[in-house]
Write a protein that binds this DNA or RNA. Structure first.
Lengths: 214, 214
DNA sequence: AATAGCATGTGAATTTTATAACATTACCAC
DNA sequence: GTGGTAATGTTATAAAATTCACATGCTATT
C-alpha cells in the first residue's frame, strides 16, 4: 500500500509559480531565500509557502531558509520539469502561432514538435521552424518525438473532434484553449485555459464594486 | 448597511462558464434547461450549479428548470456583460496579435480599442483594423473609448513598468499574461493568465501517476 | 380539485483548504 | 561548548467550499 497523500491542485499551481520565481532569484545570483521572501515575491503568505513545500519533503534549513539552486531543482523535479517535453499543437491560427513562438514554454523545458491543421490554406506554411502538417501526420510526429501532451488551439466547434483524435493517437494529457467542455475518457489529463473567463472576473468585480458603493 | 455576501471567485469563474454554455444552448434553440443538464454540460455537480446561482437570486422554476434565454441574460448581467467593454492592450508581439484577433473576446462584448508598444519596429503596423501606437498615445485612446481594463502581453521584465503606466492612466483592472507577480496599488483588480502553469500541472500529474504505479 | 412527479432552493454536514501558533533545529557569536 | 537568534516544519485552529439531503412549490394529469 502506497502512502497516498493528495496534493491540492492549488498547491501545484503555486509550486509552479515558486519555481519560476526561484529561477529568477538564481539568475540574479541570490543563493538563499526564506519562505517570507518567496511569499513576498509571489504574493502569498509565508505559511502557505512552507505548507505547500511540506507536501513533498523538507527542503530548508531552520534558522536559515532555503538554498535557491537546490529548491529550484527540487520544485522543477516535482513538477516533472527535469526532462524535456515535446508537445503537439493543433490549430495553426493566430493563437496557435503565438503559442508556438511563446518563449515561456521553452524556458521551462517545453517544445512544440508538431503543428497540425486541416485548413488547406495553412498546411505547408512555416511557423518558427515547423511546417504546418495535416492531422494525418500526427501519429508519425508523436512517435518520432515521443510526445505525450497535446495543445488544442482550434475554434470551439472543432475542439472535441481534435481531442478525440489526440486521444486516439495516444496523447495522455491535453491543454485546451477552446472555450468548451471536452469529453474525454477516464485517465486523460485535461486542463482548460479560458482566455475570456478571467476578463469576466474583472468585469464582475468592477461592477460589484460600483454596486456596493451605492 | 448593505448586505455584503462574499461571492467565491470559483463561483464567478463557473458562472462565466455556465453563461457561455447557455449561449450555446440558446443558439441551438433550446428553451429550458435543468441544473443537472448544465452540470453535465460543463462538468460540475448539479448542486454546485444551484448553489452558485443562489448567490445571486432565484432564477428557476421548481419542477421545471431554468429558462435558457432568461438565465443567459441574468448571468451576463451579473458578470457585467450587459455592456460593451473597451480594452487596451500593451505588447504587439505574437501573443498580443493573437489576443487582438481572438473571437472569443468579441462574442462576449469585449473589444480591443488600442494596441501599444514601444518597439519602433512595431509602431505603425496594423493589427486587424488597429494601428500599433506608442504608449504616449495611451491617455488619448483611453479617454476616447472610456477603457477601464488593460491587457499586458509584454515580456516579463517590462510588465511591471507597463502595469504602472496603466494605473497612472486610470486603468481599474489588469489582465496580465506576463509570468511575473505584479505590484499594484490597493483597489486595482488584477488577474494573471499564466500559460505555462497549466502545462506544469499536466506534467506534474503525468509524473505523479507513474510514481504511484511503481 | 386533488394528487403525483419533478427540479429548484436551502440549511446542515462534510470535506477541503488556509491561517495561525508553536515547537524544533541549525547556525553564529562569544 | 553554550546560549541566543532565526526560520523551518508541524500541529491545531479557523475559514471556506463543496456535497448532501430534503422541504418547497410549480406543472401536468386524471
Amino acid at each position: 500500500m502506497v502512502k497516498t497523500l493528495r496534493v491540492p491542485e492549488a498547491t501545484v499551481t503555486r509550486l509552479s509559480v515558486y519555481s519560476r520565481f526561484l529561477e529568477r532569484l538564481d539568475r540574479n545570483g541570490i543563493t538563499t531565500v526564506s519562505s517570507g521572501e518567496i511569499a513576498e515575491g509571489v504574493g502569498v503568505s509565508p505559511a502557505q509557502v512552507r505548507k505547500d513545500l511540506a507536501y513533498f519533503g523538507e527542503f530548508g534549513t531552520r534558522g536559515v531558509g532555503y538554498n535557491v539552486k537546490d529548491l529550484m531543482r527540487y520544485t522543477k523535479k516535482i513538477l516533472g520539469l527535469d526532462q524535456k517535453w515535446g508537445l503537439i499543437l493543433v490549430g495553426a491560427g493566430n493563437l496557435g502561432f503565438a503559442l508556438c513562438t511563446y518563449k515561456g514554454f521553452n524556458s521551462r523545458g517545453f517544445s512544440i514538435v508538431g503543428v497540425f491543421d486541416n485548413d488547406l490554406t495553412k498546411i505547408g506554411k512555416k511557423i518558427a521552424e515547423l511546417e504546418v502538417l495535416p492531422t494525418e501526420k500526427m501519429p508519425e510526429i508523436i512517435n518520432k518525438y515521443n510526445a505525450r501532451i497535446g495543445i488544442i488551439a482550434v475554434p470551439p466547434r472543432a475542439a472535441q473532434e481534435v481531442a478525440d483524435l489526440m486521444v486516439k493517437n495516444g496523447m495522455e494529457a491535453i491543454l485546451n484553449f477552446a472555450p468548451v467542455a471536452l469529453n474525454l475518457p477516464e485517465g486523460i489529463e485535461l486542463r482548460n485555459v479560458d482566455l475570456s473567463v478571467k476578463l469576466e472576473i474583472l468585469t464582475f468585480n468592477l461592477g460589484f464594486r460600483s454596486a456596493q458603493s451605492l
